[in-house]
Write a protein that binds this DNA or RNA. Structure first.
Lengths: 242, 242
DNA sequence: CGTCTCATTGAGCTATATCAACATCCGTGG
DNA sequence: CCACGGATGTTGATATAGCTCAATGAGACG
């Protein structure tokens, strides 16, 4: 998962990119990729560094190639709410908005593939597929935001935590991990900020899930979860499938 | 606001459309509009009717020309959460998703301008600006969803209600209404479903705002609000401007 | 081995939900 | 025109989920 990434000064790299098959770049053909590559540069962030602040001008879009970032909004008194977590393959960037609506900061050390906005617009003009690929990302992001709205507005703490674990499990599975194990990418505090809960409530929900044998917790900070009873979690999360 | 709308059998109407200057259609030139017009039809809904159900195939995009609709998700036990309210000029439609992530139903009688998805895709191919216009809408929608996430996750009932009134006030002003008066488009139950609160809590917050002289309530169902002290509301809403 | 960070657990508090009564408006039919 | 009934909003009393504050535990790291 931590393979090297595309580098401006070293053309030909996009083809080797670790996240080549995910997200925006997945659908592009060789020529589009080559054009993309010419516009792109790499940025590294260490854990805790801020990529952009709410209100900043949006000067480029980014694609995460390694590491994790959190996207969040804050109230003046410091309450903060995570909007999403960015992982390898995820795209972030407004094409038509000037000011960022959120802050983005690195949870772990990260490598990002960066496209300046003008270059992105030019790419859009030259390659319809790139614009389409971005729109697909945008629609996905919106759908996830809508799920979050439902969770925050109408689900209990237990439901939110159960649903969150299942989300992470699904993500782990997409990454090819074993079907019942996952490593939570966030600490309790950040999970709380994502789910609109406090650290303590998240912890208590985890404990309750553990005591009811739905999950097992492992690792020093209980950051590893084994899902013992996915059906029970699904029921708790109020899952309804279509 | 309730002027007639574009009608397939009566070409030339788009130019006269009540919402011509809003949303997706605003940026189009005569030729694009003419092409659009050819792909479009009108649908009428009466209050309470359902336009689409969560899980339905997305077969067309719609642009609201009159009336209001609500977009929402529900949990199996009936808890429901509004995602957004659609008003004249608003666009709704996934271009690349197959299944709707939400239910849409008419709050009032409505008139909609409908574009079948294949036609929309064709329009995208022929007119870059149309795709761009849709992407602008999508980015706006996402930004609003993110504000809602912050509200639901981290704001108190008073803050949510205050912020909501200010949102509605801003909307009324954009429609050219007087700067301190507005008519709430939703009943208390729907406001509750939008803000993740109960009817009673919404009502109590309204009362508190009234008693603190931030607003005055008028009309049989208190559906008209006069904003007496926007600054106080803003402070309550935890507004921070950039 | 102490210190730091993070998670857990407990005790009590409070904002909001729930349950219930009442008020008000509006339409309808007599 | 008035009386009635249904829908919607308000208010009150009580319950409770989740928050706050505080103490404890358990790895990680120098």
């Amino acid at each position: 998962m931590n393979r090297p990434v595309l580098i401006l000064s070293d053309p030909g790299r996009c083809a080797d990119c670790a996240v080549r098959v995910d997200g925006v770049c997945a659908e592009l053909d060789a020529r589009q990729l080559a054009d993309m590559e010419r516009s792109v540069s790499v940025k590294r962030l260490s854990a805790g560094q801020i990529l952009m602040l709410e209100g900043d001008r949006c000067e480029h879009a980014v694609n995460v190639t390694s590491g994790q970032l959190k996207v969040y909004k804050s109230l003046p008194d410091g309450r903060t709410q995570l909007l999403r977590v960015l992982r390898p393959g995820n795209f972030l960037g407004s094409v038509f908005r000037d000011a960022s609506a959120f802050t983005v900061s690195a949870v772990t050390d990260c490598e990002l593939c960066i496209v300046p906005r003008p270059a992105l617009k030019r790419l859009f003009e030259q390659h319809r597929d790139i614009e389409d690929a971005v729109m697909v990302q945008l629609e996905d992001e919106l759908a996830q935001a809508q799920n979050r709205i439902l969770a925050l507005g109408r689900m209990t703490a237990m439901e939110r935590v159960s649903a969150y674990i299942l989300e992470e499990l699904a993500h782990a599975q997409r990454c090819g991990d074993p079907a019942d194990r996952l490593t939570l990418p966030l600490g309790r505090a950040e999970i709380g900020d994502l789910l609109g809960l406090t650290i303590e409530t998240v912890s208590r929900c985890m404990t309750r899930l553990r005591k009811s044998d739905a999950i097992a917790l492992e690792g020093g900070k209980s950051e590893r979860v084994r899902v013992l009873d996915a059906a029970k979690l699904g029921k708790l999360a109020g899952a309804h499938e279509h």
